[in-house]
């Protein structure tokens, strides 16, 4: 669906999902850091506020995740997340090459955005990892920590809750790092604000 060189890549449901997810993840990161390092800094939230915010945002992001999965099953958006193994490492290498060298020489991106290809290979596989591995892991471990009585008492003399919490915080931390890189790479459009505008109005280009 192209109009004047512009592509309508982000349908309304996806933008709503993305907005809720973005705000929810920001709330989770901030409250998560406040809980993990509680009592350590005046910039952090109060423990009880952080608990309430983390719980609410966690439930919201989890419910929203099902909207994402459902949307990808029911609309053609799901095709952008399909893994294509042949030539995968070659494509990823090419994209890395562009980011570490080509971009500085003013080269054109090797995998420009089109209706068929919304994401470049590096972007696609990082999204797949985040959305289909780390987010479900965070939801499952988060749910378990919400009801800690369902967690195994001890695993090799280590508290089951401790292991779940470690898994939860490591995954949460990696999502935080992903967010930093995601925001930076999003600013590499035609102008720094271009991609941010796209995810709000749906139109790319």
């Amino acid at each position: 669906m192209g109009t004047g060189g512009k592509l309508y890549l982000y349908p309304l449901w996806l933008r709503i999902w993305h907005a809720i997810n973005a705000l929810g993840i920001l709330a989770l990161i901030f409250s998560g850091i406040s809980l993990h390092y509680s009592g350590r800094g005046f910039l952090l939230l109060k423990f009880e506020t952080a608990i309430a915010l983390h719980n609410m945002a966690g439930v919201l992001v989890s419910a929203n995740y099902f909207l994402f999965v459902l949307g990808n099953i029911m609309t053609k958006n799901g095709k952008y997340y399909r893994v294509k193994v042949p030539g995968l490492s070659k494509r990823i290498k090419k994209q890395i090459q562009y980011y570490v060298s080509g971009i500085f020489k003013g080269e054109e991106p090797p995998y420009p955005v089109s209706e068929k290809r919304k994401f470049n290979p590096l972007q696609k596989y990082s999204y797949i990892f985040i959305m289909y591995f780390f987010l479900p892991l965070l939801i499952v471990t988060g749910f378990a920590l919400f009801f800690p009585e369902i967690i195994m008492e001890q695993v090799f003399r280590v508290s089951g809750v401790m292991l779940t919490a470690v898994l939860h915080s490591v995954s949460g931390f990696l999502v935080f790092i992903f967010l930093l890189i995601h925001l930076y790479v999003a600013s590499l459009g035609k102008s720094p604000s271009d991609n941010f505008r796209s995810i709000l109005n749906g139109w790319h280009g």
Partner: peptide, 22 residues
Amino acid sequence: SEYYVIGASRVPFLNVFFAVVF
């Protein structure tokens, strides 16, 4: 490691890992 308390239990090597990656 036998119990976990939010905000009190911390894994030292993970703190280092978090700092390095960040």
